[in-house]
Design a protein around this nucleic acid. Structure first.
Lengths: 147, 147
DNA sequence: CACTACGTTGTAATCATTATAAATATAAAC
DNA sequence: GTTTATATTTATAATGATTACAACGTAGTG
């Protein structure tokens, strides 16, 4: 539960309080590697604390997002913004067929090395999203194509 | 107006019709490099053809998107999904302070060269989004920080 | 001129998100 | 351990983006 402590400390730094609701939301977010929407998180929250409101989940996630503790990931326009704890920087592969998003580890040099357009910019984060067809969808398409 | 012709051809291939409304929407989208939302496009459309409905703009953009002629770009959670004609592949810089998105040219090797996680995937597109603070916001912050 | 298929329009419905205001819980000071 | 000031939660209502739907329009075919 390292991540939770880190985020809790960050909250305190800003004079914000660590309530049971927030603690739970943070725990869920840092365990869930599936890039959940707010609604996904809410569903998990109410399993443990049924009386928590959606608003609290929205507020908490928004606050942590503005604190930089979690990040929004590419919206796939399937119901809501998705979030990701950014503990370790990583990138994403999105299958345009089954519409799933999965993590990809890329040992890649920094973008600034490949561009003059970033002169004078302070770079905080780099996020690559690779779009394509995952192996299982590809196999399915191949099979279907044999008709 | 090369892009318009290309998209028009793509429509015909699928048995879809090139109506005046669609032509206009395509023209506007391929000229506008500001990653407009549907609403942005709609506003430009009605300046030329005031009777066009939002629904048509939504439908057309959705169709072109599923045709792969335009792509959604990273949602900044400021009102709506943003679109981009993908004529030339390019990447984005997003200023987390002024919340603007601008194009960046990156002469970068393909992601697949840096990862084993993409084994068996058919890659269609790679989209890098760089988050940070643009030069003008940075200067503004520096000035403000002198107090 | 009908027939057919696709497009468009306007309206209503849906879904995600944010605003508001009253009630409550928290951390720190006493 | 109260008290106090402030932050937080809650429920509800409002907003904004997007989609569903049904009626009307258009173009091409026989």
């Amino acid at each position: 539960m390292r991540a939770v402590e880190k985020i809790a400390a960050s909250l305190r730094d800003k004079g914000l309080k660590l309530t049971p609701q927030r603690r739970l939301i943070i725990e869920i977010l840092s365990k869930d590697r599936s890039h959940p929407t707010v609604e996904d998180v809410y569903k998990q929250v109410v399993e443990v604390m049924p009386e928590v409101s959606r608003t609290t989940v929205y507020n908490t996630i928004r606050e942590m997002s503005s604190l930089g503790e979690i990040v929004e990931v590419q919206d796939l326009s399937d119901g809501g913004i998705r979030y990701d704890t950014c503990a370790e920087s990583h990138h994403h592969f999105f299958c345009i067929s089954c519409r799933t998003l999965r993590d990809v580890e890329l040992k890649m040099p920094h973008a600034a090395e490949f561009s003059d357009d970033l002169e004078g910019c302070e770079i905080v984060r780099e996020q690559m999203t690779i779009y394509g067809i995952c192996p299982s969808c590809r196999d399915a398409a191949k099979k279907a194509g044999k008709n």
